[in-house]
Nucleic acid binder design. Structure first.
Length: 861
RNA sequence: GGGCGGUUAGCUCAGUUGGUUAGAGCGCCUGCCUUACAAGCAGGAGGUCGCAGGUUCGAGUCCUGCACUGCCCACCA
């Protein structure tokens, strides 16, 4: 979008560096200059999106200042101006009101654009002399200034902005405050200005605070403004749009507000009016864009009467027609929406949508005309001299319309039928109120009565949704990316992480993976480079695994493609996969599980879970185990079977291809590259992005294979452990003995003895009839004992230490288990599978404990 | 003044509806250039889950209070 105030600021800075000023240039020339700037920098965003691999319908690129969108903005403005609420008030109105004013940007800004900062400032106490009524009359004027020098009574007020006293038009006390009852109806003489102002009674003054008396400056404080209206007080504006004191400030005119503050304080002190100066904590409002301290300023602005729109926006979320993830933002949203104030939508800027309103320049008429197109003549007085209001609209006014204006509104378009309501809005929490809230308000209001195309609605699974006016059905709120130290990125701090730079160093895929893996809902991402380094290594791992695959395909069966039989690989998790071995059955089962988990994680916006799940599968299971396990079959030249090698190769390709599809949303580039290579130019679709996302087939879950494989892995790891402890040299293969009392398990190990020998670096594998638990160089599990036969001196002390630690752990676990299993409450209330699991575990732990005990006895420690 | 988060291994972070022995990456220690991969492989050390209570058969997970910390909202001179 055109980002009115931000963009104008950027161009102003650019001009400043050339020694030029916006005001000297004139509106037209300046806007031309902004367009130039936009042309130059707007492309950066597009470029970043492309480099990030965003999948975007580029034909639908839009800009909020385009003519079609601008026309929609005017349409909305006019409709809101013409529409009246239940009380008969226009939804858009113009009013003279205290608004937040940025003296640097020289414009009004909305409440949201003010950032409050807690600072320790000063609270000054000033005493105002009470006018002595006994000397009322001619003598008052005659006596002149000297009269103030001998007052009899004072009333003391407190302020954090003493310069505003120049615009005071009253002093307020609370009617219930007995201390001031005698002063009701009297006047004080405003120091420095020598102006008599009344003492009024108003709720504004709270007896508990300070002295209980408060100065009233209707033109410079929102509360005072209201009080002023209640008491018909004059509004004396003492500053101009730059925050410089004006003629109303008398001798202080021309001074900047802070210089004036200093002088006022000095003068008050000199006149003996300043009676106190205390440290005081206050929240200082600063301009969101340029950090200048905001000044409450009386000015004529356009407002949107928000309640009508807000009510609909509340209903849409409360009813669940719009869902928000993470859920706590729902409360935040509703809380804000329920306490919303009218929205100041006019800005005294040049860059933006100019308000479609004209004023008749005829002094006697001054009619305001709001219209879609420029009127030629005043409908009231007939004058042809009309001038368009110079204000522009708040950027968010137009941004808030995007869900429907980008689809062609106010025309009735096919796009609106199909795409409205949008399915999902993804946006940052920092613009929840600025943007999201406004989109919901505008959408619900202007699209009321809209009905989405029934077929599209059903296809999206939203056929039961009632309210099609909502701009989108689901909202995903993402957090901020911070720097590695959790600091908010800022140009002034110089800690901005430029995505393009990260991409240049680590690659897009690694960058995307980092963001995905760290995107736990509701948590900021501390962008940590070491993490990205790790994911670059992952990309590298994928690449090398692909090399391995291609190497084997080229050698074993050149031209091999993933299965594309009926239904095609596109609709199945893994097509053409023929499980012929334990590892085949295992990996197929594991793949389907990961596919199930990833789909589930994505459906619930748990992106980090999906990323981590694929990572663990691909690296920890597919590469670390499966590829290692099938190597003997692939290497048929070493006395194997070529047919088996071809089958293994086909499985490898099928599984890899499916994994690529699963990985593609997070790592689009590497997966596309390998996928295309797999098909050697004959891919079933133009891009992997168009291939179906793998779905889990629960029939492929194979619990038996997973259990068996786990035992095999245990066995291999146990041998590796023993080798490491015995410090067996890497090249040396050692004989291994296994005791496996259960015949089925023994058989399974026997069938996979080759795998054990190879992956555990064993010379041979033999089965024993007797338990090995008490022998040395043994590792035991509940299913098997395994022993490495190696003539190395065992470090008895180290082995004892290890066993003792192990025994300690086991005993603790056993006693925990016993306590639970002996607990009637547990047996009665815990689910059966939990109890059963614990029983089984207790048995296994007991076996292990016995083994460890007897082993310790054997070693004599 | 309201509201919302966070506090788990040396560091950065996961841990959905309470359920077996709390995980990952990086870093660290040991050993390996084993023909996909040293950006790698194999093995290892490291945590009383901020503190104090409570609920429960069972708490990192739920409740209360406290401490520290970050953020949002608010017209307190």
């Amino acid at each position: 979008d055109h980002a009115g105030i931000a963009t104008q600021l950027m161009v102003e800075r650019q001009l400043a560096s050339e020694g030029k000023k916006r005001t000297a240039m004139g509106r037209e020339k300046f806007i031309e200059r902004v367009w130039e700037w936009k042309k130059q920098y707007g492309g950066n965003i597009t470029n970043q999106m492309k480099r990030l691999g965003a999948s975007v319908d580029w034909d639908r690129e839009y800009f909020t200042m385009d003519e079609n969108l601008s026309r929609a903005v005017r349409e909305v403005f006019v409709r809101l101006y013409e529409e009246r609420d239940a009380d008969g008030n226009r939804l858009i109105y113009r009013a003279k009101y205290i608004v937040n004013w940025c003296p640097r940007c020289e414009t009004a800004i909305s409440d949201l654009e003010v950032k409050h900062e807690e600072v320790t400032g000063k609270l000054w106490e000033i005493r105002y002399p009470v006018v002595d009524e006994s000397s009322e009359g001619a003598s008052l004027r005659d006596a002149g200034p000297q009269r103030a020098a001998v007052p009899t009574e004072f009333i003391t007020v407190a302020t954090t902005r003493p310069e505003t006293m120049l615009g005071d038009t009253a002093v307020a006390v609370n009617a219930k405050d007995g201390r001031y009852t005698h002063l009701h109806g009297k006047k004080v003489l405003l120091p420095l200005m020598n102006r008599e102002i009344p003492i009024i009674t108003d709720e504004l003054a709270q007896p508990e605070f300070g002295t209980g008396a408060v100065k009233v400056t209707p033109a410079h404080d929102p509360n005072d403004f209201q009080a002023g209206l209640r008491h018909n007080l004059p509004q004396i504006d003492v500053m101009d749009e730059h925050g410089v004191m004006n003629a109303n400030a008398g001798p202080y005119a021309g001074l900047d507000r802070y210089a004036a503050r200093k002088r006022v304080l000095e003068d008050l002190a000199a006149g003996n009016f300043l009676v106190g100066e205390k440290e005081h904590k206050l929240s200082l409002g600063k301009c969101d864009r340029c950090a200048t301290v905001v000044e409450p300023r009386l000015s004529e602005q356009w407002f949107l009467r928000i309640k009508t729109l807000a009510d609909k926006a509340i209903a849409a979320v409360e009813s669940g027609e719009i869902t928000i993830v993470p859920e706590n933002y729902r409360t935040i949203y509703l809380n804000w929406m329920n306490n919303i104030h009218d929205w100041c939508i006019s800005r005294q800027l040049w860059w933006g949508h100019r308000i479609p309103a004209w004023t008749c320049t005829n002094e006697a008429c001054k009619e305001v005309i709001v219209a879609r197109e420029a009127p030629t003549q005043c409908p009231k007085c007939g004058s042809g001299n009309l001038e368009q209001v110079s204000d522009v609209l708040d950027t968010w006014f137009s941004s808030g319309l995007l869900p429907f204006t980008t689809l062609g509104w106010p025309e009735k378009t096919r796009d609106l039928d199909v795409f409205y309501p949008n399915a999902l809005m993804i946006t940052g929490f920092d613009i929840l109120f600025f943007w999201l809230a406004r989109m919901i308000m505008f959408g619900c209001h202007f699209m009321q009565g809209h009905t989405q195309d029934a077929a599209v609605k059903a296809a999206g699974g939203d056929s039961a949704a009632k309210n099609d006016a909502v701009p989108f059905r689901h909202v995903y709120i993402h957090m901020l990316v911070r720097d590695a130290d959790r600091q908010k990125m800022s140009k002034t701090k110089g800690n901005v992480v430029d995505p393009l730079e990260v991409i240049a160093r680590f690659g897009t895929d690694a960058t995307r993976f980092t963001l995905a893996a760290m995107a736990a809902p509701g948590t900021d991402v501390a962008f940590n480079e070491s993490r990205t380094e790790g994911y670059r290594a992952f990309a590298n791992k994928i690449w090398n695994a692909a090399r391995f695959m291609f190497m084997n395909v080229d050698r074993i069966e050149p031209g091999l493609r993933p299965g594309t039989a009926e239904g095609g690989c596109l609709h199945m998790g893994v097509a053409g996969f023929q499980a012929t071995s334990l590892e085949d059955r295992w990996i197929l089962s594991r793949f389907n599980r990961v596919a199930a988990d990833v789909n589930d994680a994505l459906a619930t916006y748990r992106f980090h879970e999906s990323a981590n799940r694929i990572y663990d599968f691909f690296w920890g299971e597919f590469c670390d185990w499966y590829l290692e396990l099938i190597k003997p079959r692939l290497n048929f030249e070493e006395g194997g079977d070529k047919t088996a090698a071809q089958a293994a190769c086909a499985n490898l390709v099928a599984l890899f291809e499916a994994s690529l599809r699963l990985l593609h949303p997070i790592m689009p580039f590497i997966t596309e590259e390998i996928w295309q290579a797999v098909y050697e130019g004959n891919a079933p679709s133009k891009s992997i992005a168009l291939a179906a996302f793998p779905q889990a087939d629960e029939k492929q879950f194979d619990l038996a294979a997973e259990t068996e494989m786990a035992i095999l892995q245990d066995l291999i790891v146990s041998v590796r452990n023993l080798r490491a402890e015995l410090k067996v040299e890497n090249k040396v293969k050692v004989p291994v003995e296994v005791y496996a009392p259960e015949p089925a398990i023994r058989k399974m190990i026997e069938q996979n003895r080759g795998a054990v020998e190879r992956l555990a670096h064993a010379e041979s594998l033999a089965f024993t009839k007797e338990s090995l638990a008490n022998l040395s160089s043994v590792r035991s599990t509940a299913r098997f004992d395994v022993r490495v036969i190696y003539e190395a001196k065992i470090d008895t002390a180290a082995e004892c230490a290890r066993l003792k630690k192990e025994l300690e752990r086991l005993e603790k676990a056993i006693s925990n288990g016993q306590r639970q299993l002996g607990n009637e409450g547990f047996l009665a209330k815990a689910p059966a599978n939990v109890v059963e699991g614990l029983r089984k575990q207790a048995e296994e732990l007991a076996v292990l404990r016995d083994k460890a005990r007897s082993k310790l006895a054997e070693l004599g420690c």
